Computed example of a mutant assay.
Amino acid sequence: MKYFCLIFVCLFKNLVCLDYDGWLNIKLEHNINCKNEKFCSRGNISLKSIRAGTAIISQISFTKDHIDELKEIADLDGLYSVRSLVTSADSKETEFLSSVKAKLFLENRLSDVISSWILPNGEVIAVTFQVNNLSQNQSLQYHKGEYPINSNFYVRHVDLAPVPDTASYIQKLDREREAREKGDLKDNRSFLAKYWMYIVPIAIFVMISGVTNPEPAPQASR
């Protein structure tokens, strides 16, 4: 089954978009009905252009064997796992693993959300797989002996946090130290800013002295 899914290039208006554009391919594998293998093919997600915002998703449909094994895992409160193998024009294959409760995947009628987290330079740092909890259990969709997987795919952009310019700050401190040693550093502060630590104690002392030694009241004339 193939269908198109719109990718939201920027989640928020103030979020930095990609500085990079290129193709991206995500090979999906899962851990059920794989015979002797730990993981086997579930499908593929491909993007000719990340900036263009269109992904082609091709996935298998589950058979009765898939559902039976998924139910067995759910009865044991086990996990349904998806392995994502990511390749792009500028990077080697990178592997990401994500899991959910098999029971939740069944209750959600094999509907899931797959997100690819990408830095502004186009590097994929994570691929997550999750399901949305439904308010009530509903029956699985069934068509011609198969159970289709319903996936929504999104590109999530990660904005890098600002990095403090430590080197420039250290250089500034070194220049100020050298200037003080040479006597070239002038103090442009005001008189109060320079000597407040001397003025404040004197002012407090004068105030206290005025309170403890009040002037005698003048005597009334006779």
Rank of each mutant, 00 (worst) to 15 (best):
F105P: 13
G122R: 01
I57Q: 09
T94G: 01
R109E: 11
V82R: 02
K71N: 09
G53A: 04
K64D: 14
K64T: 12
V100M: 10
G53D: 03
S49Q: 11
D65I: 03
K101S: 13
T128F: 03
A126S: 13
A126P: 01
S115K: 11
D90H: 00
S49I: 03
V124L: 01
T63M: 00
S115T: 12
V82Y: 04
T128R: 10
Y80S: 05
L97N: 14
K103Q: 14
G122Q: 10
T87W: 00
S61V: 06
L79P: 05
G78R: 01
S98R: 13
A74V: 02
S81P: 07
I60D: 10
D65S: 08
L97W: 10
L106N: 11
A126H: 07
G78P: 11
K71M: 05
S49L: 09
L119A: 03
R51M: 09
A89E: 10
G78D: 01
T54Y: 07
L76A: 15
I73D: 05
S49E: 12
V127M: 04
K71Y: 11
F129D: 15
R51L: 11
L119N: 06
S91H: 06
K64E: 14
S84V: 01
S116A: 15
S61P: 07
F62T: 07
S88R: 01
R83Q: 15
A89K: 01
E72A: 12
V124N: 01
L106P: 15
I57T: 08
E107G: 12
D75Y: 04
E93G: 02
D112I: 06
V100H: 12
D77W: 04
S49W: 05
E95G: 06
V113G: 11
G78Q: 02
S61M: 08
H66C: 09
A55R: 07
I60M: 06
P120K: 00
R83V: 07
K92C: 05
D65V: 02
D90S: 04
S116E: 10
S61W: 08
L119H: 02
T87Q: 03
A89S: 08
P120D: 05
T63R: 00
E93M: 04
I118Y: 08
D75M: 09
D112A: 11
T54V: 15
S49Y: 04
I125N: 02
